[in-house]
Design a protein around this nucleic acid. Structure first.
Lengths: 188, 188
DNA sequence: GTTTTTGTTGATTGACGAGTCAGTAAACTT
DNA sequence: AAGTTTACTGACTCGTCAATCAACAAAAAC
């Protein structure tokens, strides 16, 4: 039962945060959506914060897996870059709830050290993936380009939360690819 | 007294949100930092939400004024773009508290329509400023470039909150200017 | 010099929510 | 079948906080 319940709670946490648009969700709300009592939620996760962290870990894991999967079938460096972008804006990760939750986890990271650490490893991994793919293409300029691209991806996520209507992954990818194309062309 | 108290409360709100790193600040905390009782805070602002909105409006106003000021003395289009970037990452706007508050206002915008509207007018103004400056330089491609640059600026803000140490405005501006330079060069 | 307006607070109210606990029921163990 | 672990819940505690109120002080108006 335990793994099932925990998974249900993690999903409910993400959904509920996305729905409400803030971390001001009660354990009761989360538990109800997951089909159980709030006491049971407290039984499996010691505290609300643990639930948040588990939800964050889940989103990050999902994203990491998708990137790894896309990289596995990518050929050259350019392909690898495109793979990272596609994974970042895939329907799994770029859906409204997940993006809303993402933004709130960023806030959580400001006050909860463990959340900050989680976000830091995500950033490091993304950066490292980008660097590996960029170095053969732009050499020494890989670092600033990777930093810029990382910020751009986060910014595109950020802007998604304010837009109304369904997420437009294609447009986001197009912007990011535009950024890349210029840098690659500039390096010759 | 009223304007003085209100201003003190607005500043205290921003500082306190930045310090705590979330919107979970009590009216008591804000009032204490502003040197008054929580009852008085409620007297001048009807509710906590009003305080948040006033603080948001203040940050946005500050930013808008700085951009306008920089644009007033800017010569050609390139100068105008640089002015917008410098204002965006000026010490006033790019300080830790303000950036922390900014992120939290983004969250607020997800659930409070008025906050969303405020953020939307900021985005529209930025976009319009960028477009005016970009059109003479890149013509029809102004729109995607402006959207990319807008997202990049937001992303750089976002990444600032996770970094430890003092904000590095110069680095942020450099990244944004790199983005611009390539687009301008690409357009010939 | 009294009335009114403005500024201010301590105490209170009322609601809400995290976490606990005591207890029930079912499933395994021996 | 008795005991033990696991799954689960309703009711409760305890704290917190937004918002209100009743009161007081001081300045302004008349």
């Amino acid at each position: 039962m335990e793994p099932i319940r925990k998974a249900a709670l993690v999903n409910a946490t993400i959904t509920e945060i996305g729905r409400v648009g803030s971390l001001d969700v009660t354990v009761g709300q989360i538990a109800r959506r997951a089909g159980m009592s709030s006491a049971l939620a407290h039984h499996y996760f010691g505290s609300k914060e643990d639930m948040f962290l588990a939800a964050m870990r889940h989103i990050l894991t999902l994203y990491g897996a998708e990137v790894r999967g896309a990289l596995a079938v990518a050929g050259g460096p350019e392909d690898r870059l495109r793979a990272i972008l596609c994974a970042s804006f895939s329907p799994t990760n770029f859906r409204r709830e997940a993006v809303g939750a993402w933004l709130n986890f960023w806030v959580l990271a400001q006050s909860v050290p463990q959340a900050r650490r989680l976000l830091a490893v995500y950033q490091r991994r993304l950066r490292s993936n980008l660097l590996v793919a960029l170095r053969p293409l732009v050499g020494a300029r890989a670092e600033p380009v990777a930093d810029g691209l990382g910020a751009l991806i986060d910014g595109l996520y950020l802007r998604e939360v304010l837009k109304s209507g369904p997420p437009d992954a294609a447009a986001a990818v197009a912007v990011a690819e535009g950024y890349l194309r210029l840098h690659l062309a500039g390096a010759g």
